[in-house]
Amino acid sequence: MTPQDTARRIIDANHYLTLATADRDGRPWASPVYFTPDGGTDIYWVSRPDSRHSLNLTARPEVAIVIYDSQRPVFTAEAVYLTAHAEQVPDSDLIRCTPTYRSRLPDLTTFTPEHLQTPNPLRLYRARALEASVLLNNDGPDLRVPLTLPI
């Protein structure tokens, strides 16, 4: 299995990622978010615009993301690391992007474009990967291999 294949398997098998943001002064914050991948470079999630990580994105759109299975035994971890640019999806893109987010949630009747606009409390967010690497569990701990985008 190639590193690209391993990364794709990790992304497809997991539903939560850790989103690392920083505020205007550089204070870090990490949040778990349910996500849906799209095309190997974009990742979508839903959040409140007044949550700490969403407010941080307004000040600094640069983020770091890690996708991994937290149930793996010690020294067998695999993970996908991304640096990305994140933003709230503009209302004009919701009709195109919302079905992608909902693709992992086919029975969910909420999270339509109408549910993700004012006056409702949630918004759709997107991170576009700029760099990616994968942590492989072969050849010893912490072997990180750069990936080619899209994954």
Rank of each mutant, 00 (worst) to 15 (best):
P3I: 08
P3N: 08
P3M: 04
Q4K: 09
D5P: 03
T6Y: 02
A7S: 10
R8E: 08
R8Q: 09
R9S: 13
I11L: 15
I11N: 00
A13L: 07
N14S: 04
H15Y: 13
Y16Q: 11
T18A: 14
A20T: 07
A20D: 08
A22K: 00
D25S: 14
R27W: 12
P28I: 02
W29Q: 07
A30N: 13
F35I: 11
T36I: 10
T36E: 04
T36Y: 11
P37F: 06
G40A: 07
D42F: 05
D42S: 15
W45Q: 05
V46W: 01
S47W: 03
S47H: 04
S47R: 04
R48S: 15
S51G: 06
R52F: 01
H53Q: 06
H53F: 07
S54I: 07
L55I: 14
L55M: 15
N56K: 01
L57P: 09
T58S: 08
A59K: 01
A64H: 03
A64M: 03
I67G: 00
I67F: 00
I67H: 00
I67T: 00
Y68E: 15
Y68S: 13
Y68Q: 12
D69Y: 00
S70T: 11
P73F: 00
V74A: 11
V74L: 10
T76Q: 06
V80P: 03
A84M: 09
E87T: 11
Q88R: 15
V89Q: 01
V89D: 02
P90Y: 07
D91W: 02
S92K: 06
S92G: 07
S92A: 15
D93H: 11
D93M: 11
L94N: 07
R96P: 02
C97V: 08
T98P: 05
T100S: 12
Y101R: 00
R102Y: 08
R102N: 13
R104E: 00
L105S: 10
P106Y: 11
D107S: 13
D107T: 13
L108Q: 14
T109G: 12
T109Y: 07
F111C: 14
T112K: 02
H115V: 05
L116K: 06
Q117W: 01
P119E: 02
N120D: 12
N120T: 11
L122C: 02
R123V: 11
R123I: 10
L124V: 12
Y125C: 09
R126A: 10
A127C: 12
A129G: 10
A129R: 09
L130Q: 15
A132D: 05
S133V: 03
S133N: 07
S133P: 04
V134C: 12
V134Q: 13
N137P: 14
N137I: 05
N137F: 08
D139A: 14
D139Q: 14
G140Y: 05
G140A: 03
P141C: 01
P141G: 05
D142P: 01
L143Y: 05
L143T: 14
L143W: 04
L143D: 09
R144S: 12
R144W: 08
V145P: 12
L147N: 02
L147C: 04
T148L: 03
L149G: 10
I151Q: 06
